[in-house]
Simulated scan of single mutants.
Amino acid sequence: MIRKTVLSAVAAAALFASAPAGAHFQLIYTPEVNLQKAGNVPFRLIFWHPFENGHAMDMGQPEEFYYIHKGEKTDLIDSLKKITFKGAHNEAAAYEADVKIKRNGDYILVATPAPYYEESEDIYIQQITKSFVNKGEVPTDWMEPIGLKTEIVPLNKPTNILAGSTFTGRLLSAGKPVAGAEIEIEYMAAEPDMAENKAGTPKAEPMPGGAIVAISDANGYFSFGIPKSGFWGFAALGSGPDKEHEGKELSQDAVLWVRAYDVK
């Protein structure tokens, strides 16, 4: 997994980096992000390699889990229950939650996981993650920054992106644009089976050439062509202001998940 900051700002572009095909990605997952009725929505918080249906990592108790709806924050930390998630190759600690959705509009789900120690790199990783659901097809605040230490703000509505179109985001750290940052891009080829808390059947395979990467420009913007329907994740590596945890390097990443659909 590539964890360095590119010092020079370059135009946003899709690149291939010389790294392993799969990347660590924190998930806030529910299979249906466009809701028509009020009710409880099931979520899974999993730290995983979803493109290759690869190794799953143990999650500690998240520091925060909440949603923002029309500018109001609702704490969800007490809704979390620890589960075991079964990947293709191993099992790992993860979390589930049922989230009550009532009113129309956008719900920005946020999880700040406990820092994860990556022994192979001798660093800690903390992926501050945003995901979205919408009720009633009423857009509200999906495009607004919400004041995270680091975050990717979508410039395309994240719950119904057209497969084959271009997605653009803006990377912020402490509220300011980040230039020249590496953003790893991940397809959720294997979506979690919600009933059995295990990996589903992969719908694609990682391509040769290593991780897919885009670079933020001088104003923090990056773009990527979405080639396939499903869930796509973007992780800006080391973009957060916190750089150390328990005496070791901390990669504090901004993660964003979006949902793309084919035209029928």
Rank of each mutant, 00 (worst) to 15 (best):
P31W: 03
G60E: 11
G169R: 00
A199L: 08
I68K: 03
P31I: 03
K81N: 11
H245R: 07
G209V: 04
E186Y: 12
L80R: 07
A14H: 14
A38Q: 09
H55P: 01
F224E: 01
K100Y: 14
V255K: 07
G238H: 02
K73T: 05
Y221S: 00
A17L: 10
M57E: 13
Q252I: 09
S8N: 11
M188L: 15
E151K: 10
I101V: 15
A163P: 05
A254K: 00
F231G: 09
F65V: 04
R170G: 01
V133L: 08
I125T: 08
Y29P: 02
D58N: 15
E32K: 14
Y221I: 00
E52Q: 14
V99I: 12
V41S: 10
Q36M: 11
E191M: 12
A93L: 05
I128F: 06
K135C: 00
K102G: 09
E182I: 02
A97F: 08
H55N: 11
P31M: 06
L45Q: 08
A235F: 05
D75S: 09
Q26E: 08
L76W: 08
K157H: 14
A12Q: 01
P31A: 08
P113V: 03
D242T: 15
K86P: 04
A17P: 07
I183G: 01
N156T: 13
A189G: 15
E137T: 11
E137S: 13
N40R: 06
F47Y: 15
I101T: 01
E118Y: 12
G22N: 13
T150G: 01
L15P: 02
D253F: 02
P206W: 11
A189I: 02
E118Q: 12
R103K: 13
F65S: 06
K203M: 09
F43I: 09
A179S: 05
G233H: 05
A11S: 12
Q26M: 13
G87H: 05
G200Q: 03
R259W: 07
K135F: 04
P31C: 06
V6F: 06
G225M: 13
G225V: 14
T84I: 12
N197D: 15
T201R: 11
K248L: 12
A174F: 05
V133A: 10
V99A: 04
Q36L: 13
L256P: 03
A111D: 09
P31Q: 01
K203A: 13
V110G: 08
G87S: 14
N34G: 08
G220H: 00
H245Q: 04
D122N: 14
A211Q: 14
V6R: 05
K135T: 01
P50Q: 07
V178T: 03
I215V: 15
V213L: 02
F234R: 07
I146D: 10
V6S: 06
A199R: 04
K157W: 05
E244G: 07
N90M: 07
A21R: 11
P177N: 02
Y117R: 07
I46Q: 10
F16Y: 14
F51S: 14
E63D: 12
A204Y: 09
P241I: 10
A179W: 00
K81C: 05
A17Y: 15
E91S: 14
A14E: 15
Y117S: 08
A97K: 08
F65R: 03
G87C: 05
E52V: 08
V255D: 00
K203R: 15
R3S: 14
D141C: 06
I215L: 10
E64R: 11
G200W: 03
A181P: 00
A23F: 08
P20M: 04
